[in-house]
Design a protein around this nucleic acid. Sequence first.
DNA 1: CATGAATGAGCCTTCATTCAT
DNA 2: AATGAATGAAGGCTCATTCAT
Lengths: 228, 228, 228, 228
Amino acid sequence: MVIDAPRPARARSAEEKNRRRDDILRAAERLWTTTAYADLSMNQVAREARLAKGTLYLYFDTKEELFLALLGEHLNAWITHTTEILRERQPRTPAQVSDALLHSSETLTPLRRLLVLLGTVLERNVRPELATEFRRDLDAQLGRVFEYMPYSPPTTLRMLRHLYAVAIGWQQFSESLSGMDPATGEPTRDAQWTFQSEFELALRSVVDHLAAQDTAEQNSSVQDTAGE
Amino acid sequence: MVIDAPRPARARSAEEKNRRRDDILRAAERLWTTTAYADLSMNQVAREARLAKGTLYLYFDTKEELFLALLGEHLNAWITHTTEILRERQPRTPAQVSDALLHSSETLTPLRRLLVLLGTVLERNVRPELATEFRRDLDAQLGRVFEYMPYSPPTTLRMLRHLYAVAIGWQQFSESLSGMDPATGEPTRDAQWTFQSEFELALRSVVDHLAAQDTAEQNSSVQDTAGE
Amino acid sequence: MVIDAPRPARARSAEEKNRRRDDILRAAERLWTTTAYADLSMNQVAREARLAKGTLYLYFDTKEELFLALLGEHLNAWITHTTEILRERQPRTPAQVSDALLHSSETLTPLRRLLVLLGTVLERNVRPELATEFRRDLDAQLGRVFEYMPYSPPTTLRMLRHLYAVAIGWQQFSESLSGMDPATGEPTRDAQWTFQSEFELALRSVVDHLAAQDTAEQNSSVQDTAGE
Amino acid sequence: MVIDAPRPARARSAEEKNRRRDDILRAAERLWTTTAYADLSMNQVAREARLAKGTLYLYFDTKEELFLALLGEHLNAWITHTTEILRERQPRTPAQVSDALLHSSETLTPLRRLLVLLGTVLERNVRPELATEFRRDLDAQLGRVFEYMPYSPPTTLRMLRHLYAVAIGWQQFSESLSGMDPATGEPTRDAQWTFQSEFELALRSVVDHLAAQDTAEQNSSVQDTAGE
DNA sequence: CATGAATGAGCCTTCATTCAT
DNA sequence: AATGAATGAAGGCTCATTCAT
C-alpha cells in the first residue's frame, strides 16, 4: 500500500552504510520521543525506518546497543552545542557559567530520558568493549568543554557530572511523584516548570560551590608556588 | 539450601496475613538487591518466598504493585529514621541540617534504586487509586519531618525533593558511566565513594542555598509585619 | 462492610441444607442471566451467595455439577409448567398442541442457554453416575407430559426432542451470526423476534409432520386390530 | 510417531504462506475432532503443526481467530458442495430439495461442532472487523446457493437458516442427553442414527412448510400483477 | 459445617534474536 | 546486503479446587 518508499537499495559504500545506520537512529529517535523503552519494539523501529527487522541487526547487535548509540549521538550533540555557547560567551563568573550551562540544557528531555535508560537497562546486553568505548569517547568529548570553562579541568568535570546527576534526578522526579496531579492522576501542568526552576537552583548552588572551591585551590597553589 | 521453614500453613488472622505479605516483600527485596527489575520474575519471587505463584497475587494485584509496596516501605523507613535523627540533633544551621540528612541517607542504595524504578516502570500497570494513595501517603509522611527542620514547610519540602533528585541522579550516575572501570569493566572500587562525596557536595550546596532563601523570606515577612 | 447478611449459620438439618443448596443455585442463576459460563467464576457465585468458596464445594463437587443442577431445575420447572398448560387446554389438533408448546416455551432464554451448555461444557468433569441420574430423572419427568398429549408416548417424546433441538438451534443462531448487525456489530434489535417466529415455524412444521405420522400409525394399528 | 516432515523451512512466497497457514488449520482440525475447544491449547496445535507457538501467531492473531478461520473453511466447503449438488440435481419439488440438502449435509459433524462454537466462544476475542467480514463473506457465499434453488432468495435463506439451526440443535442433542447410553455412559451406537433420521424429519417438515408458503406468496404476487 | 488462604497447572501472548532465502 | 518467517523462552496472570483452621 505504501509505495513512496524506494529505500532498500543495498548500502554498498561505507558512506551509504553510515547513512542507513543513521536512518535507523532517526527512526528510533522519532519513536523515542513518544514511547517508553519497554513499549518500543524493534519491530516498530524497523517499520519506522522502513527496513526489515533483520536489517537492524546488521547495524546494531542488540536493541540496547542501538539505544546506546542514540544516547551517544545526543551526548555529542549536547557537548558540541555547549562548547559553542561557551566559546561565544566566554563566561567568567559562576553566574555566567550557570547561565551558559542552563541555556545549553534547555529542551533536552529526550537526552535526559536516555540518560536514565543508561543506568537502568542500557549497558545490559551490550558488548563490554562497546560500553568501554562509549565511556572513553564520552570522556574525550567532554575534554572539548574544558578549555572554554574558567575552572580547572577536574572542577569542570565535576560540574558537568553534577549537571548530569541533577538533570536526571529531576527528570525522574518530574516523571514520577510530582508528575501526576494527586487528585486527578493527570500530568501536572507545572511539572515541567518545577523541573526547570529546581534544576536551575540546584545547578547554580553546585556551580557556586565548586567555583569557590576551585578558586580557593588555585589561590593556594599560587601561594604554594609563591612560597617556593 | 532450602531448609523447611516453620511457617503457619495458612495465614488466617489479619496479623498472619500481614506477616505473609511481609514474607513476600522480604523475598522480593532479597532478589532486588542482586537482580534488575526486568530480570526478576514473579516466579522467582514466589520461589524465594516459598509460596505458589498464585499466592503472590492474593497479596499484590500486579508485579508493579508489589514493588511499589516495597518502595513505600523503604520510604517510610527512611522518613522514620530521618525524623528520629532530626529529633535527636535538633539541627539549626544549614551545615547541621546537611549533616543530619547525610547521616540519615547513608547506605540507602536499595531505596535509591527503587526510586529510579518509580519513574521508569512502577506506576505503570498499577491501579490509579493505589498510585494516588501512594503519593498521598508519602506527602503525609513527609509532613512528619517538617516540625524538626528549622525552615518553613515549603522550604523543607523543596530540600527533601532536592535530596531525592540528587540521590537518584548520583545513583544513576554511579551505576552507569563511572560505575565501571573503563579498563576492566569491573565496578569501580571508588564509585561508592564518589557517590558519597559528590552527593554530599550537592546536598550541602542546595541546603545552603535554600536556607539562605528561607531566611531572607522570613526576614522580609518580619519586616513586612514590622512595617505595619 | 456488608453487614446485613447473617447467612452462614450452619445448615444442620436436611431441610436447611437444601435451602443452602438452593441459595447457591439462586446465586448462580442470577449471574447466569447476565454472564457467559466462561466468564462466571466460582468466586463470583460464592460472593453472590454470600458464602465462602469452599462452601460451594460442600454442595456441588464441581462447577459443572452446579450448573447441571441448575439446568435440571429449569427443565423440571419447564416440564411442570408445560404439564400445567396441557392439562388446562387439553389440546387435540396439531395446531393446538403447537400453541400450547409455544406458550410454554416463551421467555426461556436462560434454559436454552443452559441446554447449549449441556452439550458444550457440562457433562465434562461431572461424575458419570450424576450424568446418568440426570438423564434418568429427565426421562421420568418427561413421562408426566405424555398423558396430556394426544399422541402416543413415542411420538410425544420425539416432539419434545424436536422442540429441544429447534430451541437450542435457533438460540445458538440468534446468538451468533444473525445476532449482530453486520454493519455496526451491535446486537440486532430483531434477533429475538427472528428467534420467536422461526422457532414457531419450525415447531409447527415438525408437530404437524409427526402428528400426521402418529395418526397414520394409530389407524394402521387399529386396522390391524380390526383385521384380527 | 514424529517423522521428519519435508517442509520448506521458511514460507516466503504468498503461496507457501498459504500452505503454512493451511498446515496450522489442518493441525487444529485434527485435534478438534477429538478434543473439546477448552481442552485444546495453542501449545498442542503448535506441536501438532510441528511449529513454534509464536509462529501460530504470525498467521492468526488469537486462538479464536484460528478456529473462526477453520469454521469459515468448513462453511465454504459445505456451500461449494451444496451448490454442486443443487446444480447437478436441479431439484424442483420440496422433497427433491430436502433430498439434495440432506445429501449435502451428511458427515458434517465437525462443521456442526464448529457452528456450536461460533455462538459460544468464537467471536469473543476476535477483531470486530474480522467478525464482520466473516459474516459478510458467509452471506456472499450463501448467495451462490440461491440460483439453484426453486424458491425466492428470502425463502431459500430461511431454509438454509433452518437447516443450520436444526443441524446444530440436533448435534447438541446427540452430544448430550441422548448421546450417552444411560446404563453404561458410553456413546450410544444409534445416536448418530437418531441424529440423521430426526434431522431429516425436521428438515423435510420445514422445507415443505416454507415451500408451501413460498408458492402461496408467488401466486398472490402473480395475482397482484394480474389484477393490475 | 464453614471458611478462605493456598495451590499450581496451565493459559495466551510477546518479542528480541536468528537464519534460510 | 536485505529480508521477514520462525523461534521459543519467558512473561504475567487466572481460577477451579483443596485443605488447614
